[in-house]
Every structure is written in C-alpha cells, then in structure tokens.
Amino acid sequence: MSQETGTARVKRGMAEMLKGGVIMDVVNAEQAKIAEDAGAVAVMALERVPADIRAQGGVARMSDPDMIEKIQATVSIPVMAKVRIGHFVEAQILESLGVDYIDESEVLTPADYINHVDKWNFKIPFVCGATNLGEALRRINEGAAMIRSKGEAGTGDVSNAMSHMRSIGGDIRRLTSMREDELYVAAKEMQAPYALVKEVAETGKLPVVLFTAGGIATPADAALMMQMGADGVFIGSGIFKSGNPAHRAAACVKATTFYNDAKVLADVSRGLGDAMVGINVADIPVPHRLAERGW
C-alpha cells in the first residue's frame, strides 16, 4: 500500500484541523505549556514577539533550533516557526527539525525583496500573510497551504487586521458577482493567476484556510475577526505582553469558539488584568509597518 506524504491535501488539511482555534506566539517552553494548557491549537515558536522586535529593532531571523526543539519536546500540539520572506534555507532547516508548519513571515526581516520561497518544494506546509486577495492568491500559487491576514503585528491595534479581512472578503464577494468574461481583467488587476481567480469566483472562498493575525489583544478582538469570517486567529504579542497571560489565553480561546455569543464574550472579558499597552498603527511611520513587507 503506497503512502504519499507532503501532498497539497495533507498540507491544507492540517490547517483545516486548526479551524476555530487560537495559535499563540511563544518564546520559550514555559510559555508553550501555558498556551497548551489554555487550549491553544498550536504554538508559534519565535525568539522575540513582534512587540519586542518592533521595540528593539535590528534584523529579526529564524529562531535557534535548540529553542524550537525544547518547545517541541514540551507540548503535544503542533509547533510552528517563522522564516524570513524568501529565505528558503531557513525553511530547509525548519523542515529538518520537523516543525509542523512554517510561517514565511513579514514580522522577520525579509531576505528577498522580490521573491518569496517556492513552497511547493517542501513537505512541510506553509502559512503566509496577505493584505488583500491578490496577495493571498500569489502566495497560494507559490504553494502556501494556509493564509493569514497580516494586520499590523506587535501593535495590539486591531484596525489593520480589520481592514485586511474586509479587503480579502470584499474582493472575494466582488469576484463572485462578476461575469465570467470579466474575470480575466480581474486577475490582471489583482496580479493573481487566472485559474485561482476563477476558482474563488466559483466557490466564493479561498482554496485554503484563512486565519487572522496582527494586533489581536482581547477576547473581543478575536471574536470580531471570527465574525468577520476568519477561520481562526493568531495572537502574537497580545497574550504574553499582558498582565495575566494564562487567564487571557484561555479567555481568547473561549471567545474564538463562542464568537457569536455576547454573554460568553462578556463573561470571558471580565477581570483579565492589563492588556498589552500597544501602539496605534497610525503613529508608526509607513516604512516601519510590517504589513508593507510582501510582494
């Protein structure tokens, strides 16, 4: 009996299993344990959360394999890790470590300002960020098995996550209302492959799972993104930069499941302590906005 690994179906299917869940950024094994105990469906192992990358500056790179392996040894849920945009050798290294998902992430300093990683070359699935439908479809064309709207990482300001989700959703709705002969120009205008544009127009959704990231800091933020049509949420700095991470993590998990129930949302929003302080995206000079990275 032949067994085929690394197929598009098992890569995309892995993301299906994460739906309705919260994926949390963690910088060490202790945080990974807190995340797992709070009900996270996966953890993202990285050396500095986006808020610290933003504060400290410098070049942000793939994490130390020792740190990733410690986290893998500590939790039984999937472990994801980030590579710089276009850095296919960092991706080869993470594949050899057996991480469950690679995030080709604008949060790290890009390694290539023209090309992204050719993700079809890997057995490990990739998640990539997108600010609009054209960008999402370009990433899927390169082999991404999961998309997350970018938002603006490390801010605790949910406004960009909102605008990216509205943009992706709005573009999808526009495609579904077009005549077939208009899809060619739509593909040209959004700089996306025609075949994927046609598929989205027919199905009314992305061919892969769509999560939201970037600026989610409260249970209400998580529920807002779910009501906007996200399949699940990434929470980066929002948990471990807050006053009571374990409590806030569990609250965000519940809010993501019961996103339509205001009573539950009120309950889990009580007594969470301090949220991350955050920065307004409008106060960040455009060249320092991470969402601009990706092409």
Binding site: M1, Q3, E4, T7, V10
Partner: peptide
C-alpha cells in the same frame, strides 16, 4: 508522527 509524516493512502 508529526505533520511531515502526514499522508494519503488507499
């Protein structure tokens, strides 16, 4: 195993 070992089969 981990995700790298996920597979399809008949």
């Amino acid at each position: 195993g981990r995700q790298v070992d996920s597979f399809e089969s008949t």
